[in-house]
Design a protein around this nucleic acid. Sequence first.
RNA 1: GGCGACGUGGCCGAGUGGUUAGGCGCGGGUCUGCAAAACCCGUUACCCCGGUUCAAUUCCGGGCGUCGCCUCCA
Length: 467
Amino acid sequence: MRVFNTLGRVLTELEPAPPARLGMYVCGPTVQSEPHLGHGRSAVAFDTIRRYLRWRGYDVTYVRNVTDIEDKIIAAAQERGMSVPELAEEMSARFAETFAALAVEAPDVEPRATEHIPEIIELIARLIDRGLAYPSGGDVYFSVRGFEGYGKLSGRRPDELLSGARVEVSDAKQDPLDFALWKAAKPGEPWWHSPWGRGRPGWHIECSAMAMKYLGETIDIHGGGNDLIFPHHENEIAQSEGATGKPFVQYWLHNGMVNLAGEKMSKSTGVLVDLAEAIRRFGGMAVRLLYLRAHYRSPLEFREELVADAAAAVERLDRFRRRFPPPDAAADPEALERFRRVMDDDFGTPEAVGLLFDLVREANRMADEGQDPAGIVAAFYEIAGVLGLVFASTGLDDLADPLVSLAAEFGVEVDGDPVACLESLLARRRRAREERDWPVADAIRDRLDALGIVVEDSADGTRWHRR
RNA sequence: GGCGACGUGGCCGAGUGGUUAGGCGCGGGUCUGCAAAACCCGUUACCCCGGUUCAAUUCCGGGCGUCGCCUCCA
């Protein structure tokens, strides 16, 4: 299978072939504020890649970090009158529950920067030993010009970077390009003891330390948003390879940005859409499908009508799932082969989604014509599962009271169980239909519809689902 | 200015040197007590200009336009 490697900007064969162990590190969020649609895209993109690699037979170890100490978190915590750990804890929980609503699986390891201070300090010390970093006034900086390969990921040469206007100037740096590995604590900031005094890690170093701790000095796949290519990932390479002398990452994978009204979603500009809000309004699967319908590397323009469109498409999948429960049958091999072919080509999820809808139509048609679609249906479930399109069956517990009174209204025997209640009502309606008593049959259907329960008749019986 | 991505039908979005993506929407039909669902048919697509070719939306060159990165960012 081929993947697009940002390092070299080429589609390359993923080696070794399965089965093999594969270490995968993805830059998780800096837990400073609520997740937005961009965070969701990255999480879903790499969750899908992880699921697919596993399906292909790889033994994947998936690490996604939480950066819980950083300048912006400190600032945000002060603004809200909270401690840094309190804010980080609250936002981590928000990210976790929001990602869960997108059916993003929990990572195998979810390391936090603040729990790896010893590893970070050790890595910095190694870089100092090797002459690639230097302490300065309580800070420690990385010597960019001391690392020969600097710029190989982002395609920037140190000399060209100098002309950029946004280089942070500091008397403490020997060179304007140098970046902080360790920052001396200012009054009121969180700090840890270090050989260079009280301080905290710089932004990039925690990913190097944690990735290497859990996945070794050379890791197979490293992912993140393409806005991290420079400087974050460029600096990770410099720090890691500077310390070990070995290649840090075999395959760099980057997802595209989510744009809003033609502009990138970003914390700094305030151009963003709250992820939890979008999930609340359209459902987690609609948001996930929205992501999957674009290739993970393409920019994705967000508009409300596009999520509504995705929600309608999810409805179709959901109706299909209700019509055909998971069968006890082998998945159609031809469908799986098509899936493998499009996904093997740098994770072609838009085509895979197209395939999924092909299967929906095919199985519906077969069933309509009296054939058994079990193999197609099984392929549908297998593929949907790999794409992370999972559907929770909705209960009726919140509708217990209205259902009981509705049952009583139609003279149906009831106990408190809402499912039994609904079944009784549907049985009553079936009798009405057999007696060609359309007013009663339609009234039951209309009243259930008002509760959000949709009743549909078909040749093979009556089905219901919540709207 | 440097580096990179991209311009496909009403909307979104794959893909291909000549032959069906797919979804949503819209129109027609089948089925059905009605409704819904499902299925079938249609909705005449590939930014512009050159070039290569028997043939280009697909390859090459130029133009126009959009977006991202260039030390906050997923």
